[in-house]
């Protein structure tokens, strides 16, 4: 009888220790996880800021480019009209550069996608 009690006592003590160990591990694991995720969040936040910044740059640059395109289109159109008139009057045939209608559907331009950093010189036109 005493033997059995002693054995049970030992096993209880053992299981208690194991459970404490498990609990401690669980706690440590949680702490590690918390730190990990916090780190990752910070990193992602940083990436978001970077991407936003770049996006804004591009967007504004695009605006400028669009304006230029519009302006150039107008000029081209007017020049064309002139040439047309001239050719009608003088009967000479001039090659009148067509206005690229691709301007309206920019995605038609078959241009390979390569990352173009937003260069500053684009602004001096």
């Amino acid at each position: 009888m005493d033997e059995r009690k002693r054995k049970r006592k030992l096993s209880n003590r053992e299981s208690a220790r194991r459970s404490r160990m498990r609990k401690q591990q669980h706690l440590d694991e949680l702490i590690v996880q918390v730190n990990q995720i916090q780190e990752e969040n910070k990193k992602v936040r940083h990436m978001i800021d970077g991407a936003t910044q770049r996006y804004l740059n591009f967007a504004s640059e695009n605006n400028v480019l669009r304006a230029q395109v519009a302006e150039l289109t107008d000029r081209l159109r007017s020049l064309n009209s002139l040439l047309q008139i001239a050719s009608e009057v003088s009967g000479l045939a001039f090659d009148i550069p067509d206005i690229p209608d691709t301007l309206l559907e920019p995605w038609q331009l078959p241009c390979p996608i390569q990352p173009i950093p937003a260069s500053a010189d684009v602004f001096q036109c």
Partner: peptide, 30 residues
């Protein structure tokens, strides 16, 4: 926006070229 940017740049280039060409012809005509 990066894609748009590239496209627009290309457009600007072509337009510039065309405008120059047109101007040449106009000069010749005059």
């Amino acid at each position: 926006s990066a894609v748009d940017n590239r496209v627009l740049k290309a457009d600007v280039e072509t337009l510039r070229a065309k405008v120059k060409m047109a101007e040449e012809t106009v000069k010749r005509v005059t």
